[in-house]
Each structure stands twice: as C-alpha cells, then as structure tokens.
C-alpha cells in the first residue's frame, strides 16, 4: 500500500467508529457523568467530520460550525453537570436507572 495522503473517507470512518463508541457508552453505562462524557465524545466525532469536509472541500463554513458546536458543548457541560449535582443532592444517586420519578 503506497499512500501519499489520507483520503476523506478514512477520516469519515474514524469519525463513525468514534460516534458508535459514544453510542455504546450512552446506552450501556449507568453513571450519569460517564454518559455525559460519552455524549461529548459523539459531539467530537461530528466535529471531526465537519473539519475534514471543510479542509477537503476548501470551505471555511465547516470550521465555523465546529466553533459553534464547541460553544454549545461548553454550555451543555455547565448545565448537565449542574443537573447531576442537583440530582445527587435530592436523590443521593448518579445512576441513571435509579432515577425514575418521571416514570408513571
């Protein structure tokens, strides 16, 4: 195999694998903080797709979008962790399957 540069598809495959690992983390883990970290991982895999398309097509829009995703992720981190703290204060647990007050 003689490669001079990496084709776009390879970046997409890496991003797809990372997204899938994030999905597995969200579905299988019970600790709310780890679920939160898996969500961050999924956001980052999408960022990778944005950057690769921006750089392969020569269009700046993809990189601007990544900046916005980062800003939203920062806001999400603040809110999400505040919710985890409030949850722990009220229920003494951070395990998502032990919280079922919304389940009728």
């Amino acid at each position: 195999m003689n490669l001079q540069s990496i084709p776009l598809d390879w970046y997409l495959i890496v991003a797809a694998v990372l997204f899938t690992i994030g999905v597995v983390g969200v579905v299988t883990r019970r600790n709310a903080i780890v679920v939160f970290m898996a969500i961050e991982m999924m956001l980052n895999s999408v960022n990778l797709v944005f950057v690769s398309f921006a750089q392969f097509l020569g269009d700046i829009a993809g990189q601007i979008f990544v900046l916005f995703v980062m800003a939203v992720a920062a806001g999400e981190a603040a809110i999400g962790l505040a919710i985890v703290l409030a949850l722990f204060r009220n229920k003494r647990t951070v395990y998502v399957d032990e919280v079922n007050v919304l389940k009728w």
Partner: peptide
C-alpha cells in the same frame, strides 16, 4: 454507516490546496 460510505465514496483523496490558509 460503513455501507453508506462504501456505496458512495467521496472520491476526495487530498486536502484542498487552500486548506493550510483556511
């Protein structure tokens, strides 16, 4: 996702010439 990428390869093999300045 693998099938989709495989069925419709983007065909882009190298960075855009303007990539470094972007």
């Amino acid at each position: 996702v693998g099938v989709l990428i495989n069925a419709q390869p983007t065909g882009a093999t190298s960075l855009a010439p303007t990539a470094a300045s972007l």
